[in-house]
Design a protein around this nucleic acid. Structure first.
Length: 743
DNA sequence: CGGTAGAATATTTTT
DNA sequence: TATTCTACCG
């Protein structure tokens, strides 16, 4: 991966005036490869050099990674440590910081938990299940994304109820309960003293709109505001910027409407279109020179994007050489496509060893990577896949993080439910539902029910109460240690819960992998604990919840594989865009949404403009998808740029590839089945009521006839050792085994 | 309560 | 195909 690289040391006239125009509202339309990052960092540096206090500057970015890189660059330009005092980060991380400080005003405790999407969907799934609603009409993922979109448009459940159009729409679609789910979900979050990602935005909005004093305080603090990637902001984000910038109007937005590709998560391209009419005396700057790509690439990109009706007029141009034309290749099927793409790269790498990193293969869907990987692996080409599950989204990591979250905020029901029976301690769904019911009816958190009520008014048998008490004791010990060093707390956690021990006891490949991940987590906890300041558990959770900085950039030379969304902001000499087929790119779903195709076209625009030297496009006539082979036709976008292309057809039927079974790179991921008699023992007391005696003859439903040799009641779970006539010696748990006494 | 088999389902993704 | 969820049985 090569970072944006500007050829000249001086700014061009447009760039320079964009940097120098520090006062008043400014819009910078920055085409691909136009030196956008440079302009932003120079601008911040310029403000600091002019004497503006760094802490009076707010700079919002799309990712934390971008923020960190920019901080470093500003530091390098200004050469003063003060550069790090600039408020630079994502909307979410900056606002979380503010909300922790002001939480009490909104009725939260400052130790509130931040829920990620997985948490949110789990909560919604539970609500839907409690209400016994039809899964067809109420798909948890769908409900969540709709709630998210509503929140981002500042439509809360009350406003939703009053909106006749929305209600009518739900009735037509038989989703009239949606608004209730919406409300219950929000209540559930507040009840848990938790915010989801959207809440971080809307709560900031409410904080500022309901409190004049606070609004003024932050308006005074953030005298200069700068926002990157404005085309991908949503309505709340736009509204907050208006609130904060109202007084001084020193708002500088940077973006490119042609690169708006996140509408599916609420981004509103109109924010950038309407900026000029929302403010007075807006100074507009267009960065139209592309320093990155060849003339041919820029021309193709321009040709393509001109098919979109909705856009800000601009002429992107390049002064670089013409370069190669855009290559288009037709393949017989997706396996051929993957294989031959790898072949093309292989040939180039043979000529120029260690240039893997100059190549990137971009696709629409993650699932497309598999066939490409096969082709690369076959030729032993080193590659790296971006995306997939991030470290902190792994189950075992989230489980441990749930303990941490609970230590800081015991009211966090979601985290409690996640680990109340992890590791398995015999607390099942019946008990959990009883606790949840009680918590709901008393409007208290589950932890409060567990700790204050002492389980007196709940119908739970004494065995289960014991188990709950064990759980309570573990947590209470962890609470006591919460002010000590986070690493010590982590060690205590492992010791008390036995998480690691249980994994070690059952060392399947999967569990070994989990143990490795846990030890990696412990490494970062250890490192974190060595920090001098801000090294509390809450700080750690904060960093993990909002920071995906764990995407290691290796210095090995590897071919990059990623979705186009992930390629945003990156640059590579050679870019291969695969799977240009209708229904895949543009996606099936986009065809049904108005303006959906325009967004897909912008997506291809982003993909093409990642390349500096050469773009290779390809499509397949047949594609293996969802377990079947489907015929496909070339993408409509290919027609858009017809005359920019150099076409090639490689669609011969390659039998060898066609019939080859796809390789899976998973090693024995199935969990091993425990042989009968070695089942894990729960600590609930159980004894067969039939008064078993040594020497009794029994008949088992599977093993047949046998006689009892030994009876063991020692750990509460009655076990019997039996010699069967046909099957030999077995140890059975009488709780589970099906048998009758015959003598 | 816990594990397993078999059914259901299937963009893009950062926070 | 691959993953995730549910229902069932010991």
């Amino acid at each position: 991966m090569i970072k944006e690289n500007i050829n000249t040391n001086t700014l061009n006239p447009q760039q320079e005036s964009a940097v120098k125009q520090t006062e008043g509202p400014v819009i910078i339309i920055a085409g691909p490869g136009s030196g956008k990052t440079r302009v932003i960092t120079e601008r911040i540096a310029h403000l600091i050099n002019k004497g503006i206090e760094p802490q009076n500057i707010l700079a919002l970015t799309f990712t934390n990674k971008a923020a960190n890189e920019m901080k470093k660059r500003v530091y390098e330009i200004t050469n003063t440590q003060a550069a790090y005092s600039v408020w630079m980060g994502t909307f979410h991380s900056i606002f979380a910081k503010i909300l922790r400080k002001e939480a009490h005003i909104l009725g939260y405790d400052s130790n509130f938990t931040i829920y990620d999407n997985e948490d949110s969907i789990k909560i919604i799934r539970r609500i839907i299940k409690d209400r016994n609603l039809d899964k067809e009409q109420y798909n948890p993922k769908y409900v969540f994304s709709k709630i998210s979109i509503m929140k981002n448009q500042l439509i809360d459940s009350q406003k939703y109820k009053q909106n006749a159009e929305l209600i009518k729409h739900d009735q037509i679609n038989k989703r009239e309960k949606f608004v209730e789910l919406y409300q219950e979900y929000c209540e559930s979050c507040t009840q848990s003293n938790s915010m989801d990602f959207d809440d971080l935005l809307i709560n900031t909005y409410h904080l500022l709109s309901k409190n004049k004093l606070i609004l003024t305080e932050y308006q005074e603090l953030f005298k200069y505001i700068l926002i990157d990637e404005y085309q991908d902001t949503n309505k709340v984000q736009d509204a907050i910027i208006q609130q904060l910038g109202e007084k001084y109007q020193n708002i500088c937005i940077v973006g490119d409407d042609s690169q708006s590709i996140y509408s599916f998560r609420g981004a509103n391209i109109n924010n950038i279109f309407n900026f000029k009419s929302n403010y007075q005396n807006v100074k507009e700057f267009k960065l139209e020179q592309n320093y990155r790509s060849t003339k041919n690439i820029v021309h193709a990109a321009n040709t393509l994007i001109n098919f979109n009706k909705q856009k800000i007029e601009k002429t992107i141009f390049s002064k670089n050489e013409n370069g190669d034309p855009i290559q288009l290749i037709e393949y017989y099927n997706d396996r051929n496509e993957g294989d031959k793409t790898a072949e093309i790269i292989y040939r180039l790498i043979c000529h120029n060893p260690n240039t893997n990193h100059q190549h990137a293969i971009l696709y629409r869907n993650n699932s497309q990577s598999k066939v490409i990987e096969d082709g690369l692996r076959k030729r032993r080409i080193k590659y790296k896949i971006y995306g997939g599950l991030s470290f902190y989204q792994r189950k075992e990591i989230k489980d441990i993080m749930a303990y941490f979250k609970l230590i800081v905020n015991p009211d966090d029901n979601e985290s409690l439910l996640r680990i109340i029976n992890y590791p398995v301690r015999g607390i099942g769904s019946t008990t959990i539902n009883k606790l949840r019911g009680k918590a709901n009816s008393e409007k208290k958190s589950i932890w409060k029910i567990l700790s204050y009520n002492n389980l007196e008014n709940i119908q739970i048998n004494s065995g289960t109460k014991n188990k709950l008490n064990i759980f309570k004791e573990i947590l209470n010990e962890l609470f006591k240690s919460q002010n000590s060093n986070i690493f010590e707390t982590a060690e205590l956690l492992i010791e008390k819960t036995g998480i690691v021990r249980k994994l070690k006891d059952n060392p399947t490949d999967e569990n070994i992998n989990r143990l490795e991940n846990i030890s990696e987590l412990f490494n970062s906890v250890k490192l974190f604990s060595l920090k001098k300041t801000n090294n509390s558990i809450l700080d750690f959770i904060n960093e993990v919840s909002l920071d995906e900085t764990n995407k290691e950039t290796s210095n090995k030379s590897e071919v990059s594989l990623m979705t186009i969304h992930q390629s945003k902001g990156l640059e590579f000499p050679y870019v291969y865009i695969v799977g240009l087929e209708n229904g895949l790119f543009p996606s099936q779903r986009s065809l049904k949404i108005p303006s959906g195709v325009e967004e897909e076209r912008r997506l291809l625009y982003v993909a093409i403009t990642r390349a500096s030297k050469k773009v290779t496009l390809s499509y397949s006539l047949n594609r293996f998808q969802f377990g079947t082979i489907q015929q496909s036709e070339k993408s409509m976008f290919i027609d858009n740029i017809e005359h920019c292309l150099n076409k090639e057809i490689k669609n011969e039927f390659n039998q060898q590839l066609y019939f080859k079974k796809p390789r899976t790179n998973k090693i024995n991921s199935q969990t091993k089945i425990n042989p009968i008699g070695l089942r894990k023992v729960t600590n609930e007391k159980y004894r067969d009521s039939r008064n078993l005696q040594i020497g009794m003859k029994i008949k088992h439903n599977i093993f047949g006839k046998g006689s009892i040799q030994k009876i063991n009641n020692s750990d509460g779970n009655q076990k019997i050792t039996v010699i069967f006539e046909e099957h030999g010696l077995k140890i059975l748990l009488t709780k589970f085994a099906k048998f009758e006494i015959i003598m």
